[in-house]
Design a protein around this nucleic acid. Structure first.
Length: 270
DNA sequence: ACACGTGTTATGCG
DNA sequence: TCGCATAACACGTG
């Protein structure tokens, strides 16, 4: 289930393999995945055209489509979405979150889990694999409602957008309209790195604490992109009932913050 | 059988 | 209208 780093890998797969190939067919028959569109609407907007660019902000992807007045094609992977692009050069895949072992497992690619397909003139295809069906494909998605990308957000902007309100700082990080791209695991990781209690009201953090948090957000995102996803991050591997803090060895504690399961080090995160 | 989940969104309340 | 909390969404997994 993708967070920003996995979504970036999916965007990259489209960018490297899915552009400038003429679309001759679209399977948009899954009315849940393609809501609120009716079957055929997305197809009619895309057939005969090509994707010309793949963009990302936070966890949202959108592709430019060639042709005057063409809408953009929005893709959100939800919690279980992955993108597969096939063509003359083989198949590339992005958006995976569990690591290469699971990526290769054919049992995780049942045909009925493919919820959306673009067929290209050259015989290849771009497909969205989404077992849980919480992803979404739509035309002209509204990405302006998202906050600045978590990997790009500036210091001043971070202070203003994250360091406000009574909401627990973890819940604020998860709010995509404040900053975009941080999910549950990444939030636990960056708060652990910054040694901040996830339950602290965001507006009570000092400027120094906010700057430190931003630094860890950027560092963790970069690390996860480079190493293959959020599951490669240090503290993510220590989630669970028997997990211990990789720094001090204290038993990690479980809580619910912002409606999500949260693990943190009760000794260091204050 | 049953609880849980790496994400979003509609709804309701003060 | 805003800030926030909660349930709901659909479906696989342990």
């Amino acid at each position: 289930m993708p967070e920003l780093p996995e979504v970036e890998s999916a965007r990259s797969v489209i960018d490297r393999g899915g552009l400038h190939r003429t679309i001759i067919g679209v399977d948009d028959s899954d009315t849940w995945e393609c809501r609120p569109h009716l079957p055929g609407e997305i197809r009619d907007a895309l057939v005969g055209h090509r994707l010309t660019a793949a963009h990302r902000r936070g966890k949202s992807i959108w592709c430019d489509v060639g042709g005057d007045g063409s809408p953009t094609l929005g893709i959100h992977l939800g919690m279980s979405g992955r993108i597969l692009v096939s063509g003359p050069g083989g198949t590339a895949e992005g958006g995976d979150y569990q690591g290469t072992g699971r990526r290769a497992d054919p049992a995780r690619r049942r045909e009925e889990w493919f919820r959306f397909t673009l067929e290209f003139e050259d015989g290849g295809a771009l497909r969205l694999l989404d077992p849980r069906r919480l992803g979404r494909v739509r035309l002209d998605p509204d990405v302006d409602a998202l906050g600045p990308d978590a990997a790009e957000v500036g210091r001043e902007e971070f202070r203003e957008r994250v360091g406000r309100g009574r909401l627990p700082v973890k819940a604020r990080l998860l709010d995509q309209s404040s900053i975009a791209g941080v999910g549950n695991l990444l939030a636990d990781e960056v708060l652990w790195r910054a040694r901040l209690d996830p339950r602290r009201p965001a507006g009570e953090l000092s400027v120094e604490e906010l700057d430190g948090l931003r630094r860890q957000v950027r560092a963790a995102v970069r690390s996860a992109i480079r190493h293959g996803g959020v599951h490669t991050l240090e503290v993510v591997a220590h989630r669970g009932p028997s997990g211990h803090c990789p720094r001090c060895g204290a038993e990690m504690r479980r809580a619910t913050v912002g409606g999500r399961t949260t693990w943190f080090c009760p000794r260091e995160q204050v």
